[in-house]
Design a protein around this nucleic acid. Sequence first.
DNA 1: GCATGATCATGC
DNA 2: GCATGATCATGC
Length: 466
Amino acid sequence: MKLPYNPKDKNSVIEYAKKLKGKSLRQVCNTNILEHSYSGKGNFGQVLEKFYFGYEPNSTAEADFAQIGMELKSSPLKKLKNNEFRSKERLVLNIINYLNVVNQNFENSDFIKKNSSILLIFYLHQVGYDILDFIIKLVDEWSFPSTDLEIIKKDWETITKKIADGKAHELSEGDTYYLGACTKGANALSVRKQPFSDIPAKQRAYSFKQGYVNHIIASIANEPTEIYGKLIPSVAVAKKQTIEEIVISKFKPYYGKSEEEILTILDLKLNKKAKSFYANLTKAILGISLEKEIEEFEKAEIKVKTVRLKENNLPKEDISFPTFKYDEIVNEDWENSEFKNILEHKFLFVFFQFENEKLVLRKVKFWNMPYSDLLEVEKVWAKTQQVIINGKIVRGFKTNKNGKVTRETNFPDKEFSKVSHVRPHALNSADTYPLPKQDKFTKLNEYTKHCFWLNNSYVRDEIYLK
DNA sequence: GCATGATCATGC
DNA sequence: GCATGATCATGC
């Protein structure tokens, strides 16, 4: 069959692809498409390959358009309230072959062979629509900007080293910056062999983090880039230093200095009461204008947490996370849960310590939760879910000497786990979310908003002191 | 001095 | 009106 484009000519393929813009699959594909069973995830790409580009979907290590070394990837967009497009999810690339990758260099890797040149097709996902009716919004060829490629190379090496160390089963998306190792497979039973351990490892694929995909989208859509400030000014710097090294080297001159001293050195006037105080102080130390976003942090989805330590090194407060909704958490499973998703990010901790009434910068630390602790949090999460499902949140009341009544709950406390616990996080006890099952003790159908917290002692022992 | 339940302040 | 980071109050 004659193809409507020349598969040996990159421009011809791209030109043909760009005709997709503004159209749906139903509009551009030939009619026998309706006989194809296309429902389900991932099939947008399959229909596109088979019925628009006219080749059979494959899963070889070679790029889809083998003669020109270009890979086809389609991915969903979501629309924000202000009509801007964002990626709906991470962009999943090729499966990690644990057995082969340990014998490869980045330059000759399966990853590079497959993904050096990608034909990207972004479509607008709309709830309730058939995949054939999603409108294609953005089409373009994409290859790694040279600075990003250096970060991605280090990410690839981090992933490869973990496999070479016999720890493929401990891989986490938080290990890396732009390129993640995300789980891929129907369920937790999708496992495969790893070369240096007998423990089966979850099947994983390389993926661009959602934050990174957003920047690809902005670049293809030619959106303005002035709103971002860069930590890494050039490829030369990216070759020499990691994001982590650059950030630490910028913070180090301020270690041991108080907030006031830092503001004086930076010649900066910030409102200490303002909610954005620490975010702005961080930007100023990193040399980023206050009105700009830190590009590398956005791409890597790094979460910054400021911690104030007491003189005895214990953080003054535990670290809170967004409140969970009772009727949602009971339907989640741990692997796809909101809290696990948050904990699989990369964090930057900024530690201040009280010293003679002043707050002194001690250090900054990049951190992501180790595998063993994630297993521990799973227990906390599972217990929390069970308490809600059983309708046994409250176990008793307590009245203080002023006659004020508080409730005692069965949620996992600090005693239950050294890592994490569950506590209220609300305006007051009347600030509630609905319960999926009435609480047996109080007969309440809704309950004060709660969230998961990281124990302050855990933050001290496993993040600050390590 | 800490754990736990409760609440506040800011900013969008 | 709510999310988020921060803080308070009480009892052991």
